[in-house]
Nucleic acid binder design. Sequence first.
DNA 1: CTGAAAGCGCTTACAG
DNA 2: CTGAAAGCGCTTACAG
Lengths: 339, 339
Amino acid sequence: MAGSTIYDIAKKAGVSIATVSRVVNKSEGISEETREKVLKVADELGYYPQAYAQGLARKKKNIIMVVVPVLSNYFFMEVLEGIQDEISNHNYDLNIFNIQGKSDMFSQVENIIKRQWADGYLFISTHLRTEQLNKLKSYDMPITLIDEAYEDMDSVLVDNEKGIEQAMHYFLANDLNRIGMISALKSSKPGQQRIQGYRKALAEAGVEIDDKLIVTGDSMDRDGFSEKNGYEGMNKLLDLENPPEACFCASDIQAVGALKAMEERNVKIPIIGYDDITISNYIGLSTIRQPMHEMGSIATQMLVQRMQDQELSPKQKVFSPELILRSSTQLKALAKGES
Amino acid sequence: MAGSTIYDIAKKAGVSIATVSRVVNKSEGISEETREKVLKVADELGYYPQAYAQGLARKKKNIIMVVVPVLSNYFFMEVLEGIQDEISNHNYDLNIFNIQGKSDMFSQVENIIKRQWADGYLFISTHLRTEQLNKLKSYDMPITLIDEAYEDMDSVLVDNEKGIEQAMHYFLANDLNRIGMISALKSSKPGQQRIQGYRKALAEAGVEIDDKLIVTGDSMDRDGFSEKNGYEGMNKLLDLENPPEACFCASDIQAVGALKAMEERNVKIPIIGYDDITISNYIGLSTIRQPMHEMGSIATQMLVQRMQDQELSPKQKVFSPELILRSSTQLKALAKGES
DNA sequence: CTGAAAGCGCTTACAG
DNA sequence: CTGAAAGCGCTTACAG
């Protein structure tokens, strides 16, 4: 039963392979009689066209491929949900290609494109350099970037700086000037951007920046976007001689860790995360919302369009982040007033 | 630059396609001179072998494919992390195939196998029926099941009932007899199993079972394994005339929702979840740990072994779940003593 | 060390 | 309505 080919079916059904192919692909103009005969044999022998042979012959794979550096990440998971939902409206299968952290990321990404795995690609948080994106562009493959800006390709992203600004403004407006920042790894692009946003917002407000308030945990997993990293980061902040009176985290998942550190030490300062992953609503975490689900579905739509017409001019979709206030920032009264 | 083939390279470099193939595949016995010449041209033209053509010619894809019904799920994410880690020790690429919820799941799964996408498959939580697994078995492809039991294939799973038993024993031993159960959708296999474990444990302890205490939320997303579902479930429990004095949740993520419902209503009863996803530790949720990461890596190891020798007899790896006590069960004093 | 040729399993004009 | 044949882009014995 294993591994029967179109030849086996043709032989057993007493027809040509062309006929088998037509039946299996539901082409028109096949007599009902042969159709049934072929289908019966195909079912008996467990036949269905091999993807690789079919893809080669057709020069079309019917696959949309998501390319990601790290799979186990909440942001990614929720974006993916949006992709999944949207893709179910189209006739494509979804494949995810996990690029391994070890060797050079760009060469891996480049090879994926060269190898022509799919008809179109969704790159999530790959954070490539402009010259690298230019190179990719030259392969002339439909690609949509998510969480990454590049004007010569379709991309959907969120205005990071603006989001952070909102968080900062909120703190400052509430008279909280000494604001800690728990960052992700500085080597990660969004990590950098968020730090920059932090600095910029403070600078504009005329608040002096204390570099000691910008920390990250020691856990490098997931580029530092982890509970553990946030936990460690908050502990560093609280160990400071002059600890912050509020805190901004580069991601909700870090904030989860930070919250725990606070609880253990029995201190409470207002804290704002970044992302608005689903749990944040349930644990009362204030945050900057990125519309992850929508980002995924919009990106998929854009990609599908481009696959139909590669001549379209590149589109950017920049979402504005939104500050969501929950209980984690309602501690001001507690912290200042009541204590 | 886009889409050059081995013929283009051969022509431009003035060699045969066989030579190009050998150079690109790093075969031995190629003069340094031609090697360099070919490599130079290949680089200029951005050539790398097309995956589909190569796979067809070699009859080997070098791909391990993970097949999952629902991507955005914490259990899956953590299992995946283990898979990812282990796979980086081997020379395979990782592909994830997302089967769409809409049409018949089994026929989709069957087609994936028939289409020979990969050299080996990891099925996570597909929960197929025995006859279906028998059918899959007949295709004679290396498959390892995760979170699913079937004695004729390699599989790694956790003894669900035993886990639930532990939670129940803990409650009962602490004099908590009226135990609520927030279940996932009853149509899901693990959902069922967990309800069964609940009933069994109570029956063995001679505690009368009140069916009103077994609830699920109205949110059907992710088979009911969601925050929202847990939130709704807990609200139903607390709306009961005679609400439970403790609660068991079919997953941690549901417990997160349940916790919120309790907080809003300002009630606290001991609660135990299931899975031990990373955040649970940070929010103090007691739970039954499934070693997800390890399950992923062990399953991958088993699969790789089987890909080397399809004659191996099927192995089962059954993990014992472990009760992890955290603050969410330390409320007994509060609930009973102090109030 | 290198090339000509067969073959991998399909699809799809082209004929009939 | 059906088949013979070329072609998709590779790999790999086989010869030399």
